Computed example of a mutant assay.
Amino acid sequence: MADVALRAGVSTTAVSLILNNRQGTRLSDDAAARVRAAADELGYRPNLTARALSTQKSHVIGFISEQVTTDRLASGLIRGALQEAKRQGHVLFIAETEGEADAVDEAVDALTDRQVDGIIYAATRPQTLRVPARVGNTPVVMLNAFSDDVDDAVLADEFTGAQDIVDLLLDAGHADGIVILGRSLDQPDDEWLTAAVQRRLGGIWSSLERHDVRPIAQLPCQPWSVKNGYEAVHDLLEAGIQPQALICLNDRLAFGAYRALSEANLTAGRDVAVISFDDDDIAVYLHPMLTTAAAPFEDMGALAVRLLLDEDHERGEHLVPMPLRVRDSVHLTRARAAQLAASNPEPDWTR
C-alpha cells in the first residue's frame, strides 16, 4: 500500500479509502484514478486475511456437496450459487464429501478454519442430512436437502409443480387411461421415498382427486432410470394395456418410455401423451420434445447465497417454483379439441 501511495503521490490512508470504495471522502477523481492505475501497474492485492480480521467478514462462502459436483443435472445448484456469490463480491469454496460422514466433518473443519461467512450444504437428491455440531455459530443454509439442526432449507416446490403437470394433462383432455410411472402410492416406504418424492406424488394425487380422476395403473420402479422406464412401459404394453397418458416421475423414466412406445409403433404426443419432471438437457432433443416441469436448480443455488448473506431474512423452508416447459409430447385429444372449437368458434369473415 505504501508503494502504491508513493507512485500515485498520495497518502497510504488515501489509498486505503479509494481501494476500499469508501464513500463520502474529499479525494478528487484524479487522485482516485492515479491510485487505481498505480495499483494495477504494481499488481497490488489487498491482504484478505488482514481485512477479514478487521471486518469479521472473509467474503468466502463454503459449499459442502453431497455428490452435487459430479451430477450433470444437480450441478446447476453450484452454477447458481457461484453466479450469485460473484455478484455479491464473494468467493465459493467447494468441498465434496461423496456422502461420507467423516468427509462431512472434515469439510466443516476446513471451512470454519478459513472463517467462511457461511456454509451451504447441498445434496443431489433431497434428503435429510446431519450437520455436525462443530459448525458452531457459522450460518448454514440447506440446499435441496433438510436437516433437523438447521432452520433454513431451499427446495423446489414439488407439490405445486406436480399439480401443474396434471392440470395441463387434464386440460388437454387426457382424463382416461392415465398411468403413473415410477412409484405406486400403495408401495411400502423405502430409501427412495424422500420428502421431495412424497410431495411430488402428493401434488399428482391432489390434482387427480380434484378432477375426480383415477389412474388405470401405477408402475413402481427404482431407481428412476432409462432402463427401468423402458422395461415398465414395455411390460405394460406386452400385457395388452395401452395408456392414453404417462405421468413419468422424472425425465429418465420418460426417455425409456419413449423407446418402449416406439417399439410398439406408438408415438409420444400423438398416440400417448407423455409428461415428466426435471427438464434434463436431452428433453428438447427427443422427438417430439418432452413436456416437463423443470428442476429450478440454478435459482435455488442463487437463493441459498442470498439467504446466507441476509441476516434479517425469515427462517424456514423456501420453495422455488418449478417452471412448466410445455412442448409437443402432450397433445389435445380429439374430444377436447372439438370442445374448444365449439366454445371458441372461428369468426365468420363473410359478414
Score class of each variant (00 low, 15 high):
P139G: 12
P139L: 08
V140E: 11
M142F: 01
L143P: 00
N144M: 02
N144Y: 08
A145T: 11
A145F: 02
A145K: 04
A145M: 10
F146K: 15
F146A: 14
S147H: 01
S147K: 09
D149Q: 15
V150W: 07
D152A: 10
D152Q: 05
A153C: 10
V154K: 12
A156I: 07
D157S: 15
D157F: 12
E158C: 04
F159N: 13
G161M: 03
Q163N: 15
Q163Y: 08
D164G: 07
D164T: 13
D164S: 14
I165W: 03
V166S: 15
V166W: 06
L168I: 13
L169C: 04
L169S: 03
L169A: 04
L170H: 05
L170G: 03
D171N: 10
A172L: 05
A172N: 15
A172T: 07
G173E: 02
G173R: 06
H174Q: 04
G177D: 00
G177Q: 04
G177V: 00
I178W: 01
I178S: 04
V179N: 01
V179H: 05
L181N: 00
R183G: 07
S184D: 12
S184F: 01
L185H: 15
D186Q: 12
Q187T: 14
P188F: 07
P188T: 03
D189H: 13
D189V: 06
D190A: 13
D190M: 11
E191T: 12
E191S: 07
L193A: 13
L193Y: 11
T194A: 00
A195Q: 14
A195E: 13
A195S: 13
A196G: 02
A196N: 05
Q198K: 15
Q198I: 12
R199N: 05
R199L: 07
R199Q: 06
R200F: 07
G202R: 06
G202P: 10
G202E: 11
G202V: 11
G203T: 03
G203N: 05
W205V: 05
W205T: 01
S206M: 10
S206C: 15
S207I: 06
L208T: 07
H211L: 08
H211Q: 12
H211W: 06
D212G: 03
V213H: 11
V213E: 14
R214P: 07
R214E: 15
P215Q: 00
P215G: 02
I216G: 05
A217M: 03
